[in-house]
Nucleic acid binder design. Sequence first.
DNA 1: CAAGCTATCAAGTGATCTATTGAATAGCAA
DNA 2: TTGCTATTCAATAGATCACTTGATAGCTTG
Lengths: 225, 225
Amino acid sequence: MSDRGAKEALFEAIAQMGKAFASPRRLELIDLLAQGPRTVDELAQASEQSAANASQHLLALHAAGIVSREREGTSVRYSLAGEDVLQLWLALRDVSAARLAEVERAAREYLGDDVEKIGPGELAARLRRRDVVLVDVRPSEEFEAGHIDGARSIPLEELERRLDQLPADTEVVAYCRGPFCAFAHEAVRQLRAAGRPARRLEGGWPEWRLAHEQTPAMKVGSGSS
Amino acid sequence: MSDRGAKEALFEAIAQMGKAFASPRRLELIDLLAQGPRTVDELAQASEQSAANASQHLLALHAAGIVSREREGTSVRYSLAGEDVLQLWLALRDVSAARLAEVERAAREYLGDDVEKIGPGELAARLRRRDVVLVDVRPSEEFEAGHIDGARSIPLEELERRLDQLPADTEVVAYCRGPFCAFAHEAVRQLRAAGRPARRLEGGWPEWRLAHEQTPAMKVGSGSS
DNA sequence: CAAGCTATCAAGTGATCTATTGAATAGCAA
DNA sequence: TTGCTATTCAATAGATCACTTGATAGCTTG
């Protein structure tokens, strides 16, 4: 009855999924993939690691059923395997932020001083009233892979140069990859330094998408090799 | 700006939480703790490992903010640090079950042939009509630490001997720790072998509690040492 | 305070994981 | 075919992790 071997095998198998989330490099890749599908090369560059290393980690994630891959000419495009995976990642991130003081500290260190923020509810209302300019400050590939309805893309790098493209009298809301992404923080600091009213959206594109996109037909079923 | 060091530290810190879920032994401890608080010794016995080893793993979980500890006379009682942790564990478990064929296989191997089940919605309705006998087949300590309202405790070990305590004309529903716990499966098999109508509840006590207990005032805030 | 129990610590060994490097393969373009 | 690029494979060394054993510390009881 108490079949120890089989029980051990079960937990062992579940632990395979846990192991996928046990490396900072892999987490960074997951975080990038939460913005949308990317090729190995793009991911390697964005996470500042060698292509070989990124590939290895991506293969590990694929073995754990976390990402799916698709050949695309000479390159391979990876994406998160499904919405459940995205939710799991966000849950892990949020729990670790809530429970590990070290994460809080590292986040403050990375993000710098916090800037004024606006919740998704208020933003939605003000978007309907066309009472706000919403700016997506992520790299343009990520904008193209998906963005909040009504947002315009101004990658952080170009923001300073394109300040005059923003109406001077309307409040600006900037958003990026999520609560631990520094882009929106930095954008708001730049905007305020230029004397414009600006806030950052609480959370980023993945959180917004999960909350607003009903049955978004993201790929379901474990990714094929 | 692109402060690699700080960003690495952030992902490194989050990975600490991931690592906590990367060992089968720790997962088994978490699964046990999902039923309720237990002492080191109880956990070591229930998971069939040495007390020293269980203690090490529990300390690791504590360092990751996943469990809280409380001295209790000569022993130490551990519990899950909060509801968010429980939800994270259930999410990890479910995603791995959905994405990893190996988990499916191991589960089938451990649980044996599937038995007829009843969903929580239907069970709730029939409980209101007092139309069903609900049996908690977990060990009695777990029943005492919390159970579904209206259930009676008959640990699996005692079921055969206490069959006559169950009304012969009413359907029996058995539940245990969760979808990957073998107790309810085995209980239903025994009941049906004895010629009684019986089904198992889909999911176990933790899932039921999360769904039905509003703001359950489980300990919040990272556990002190 | 001494005995007895529970939990933790400390050290050691074998196993597993990670990043690096250089080579191999698959598709594309000429 | 031949080259070119993107990705993966293979081998390695260094780091980290898991489990064991034996010792230690904290609490309770006599």
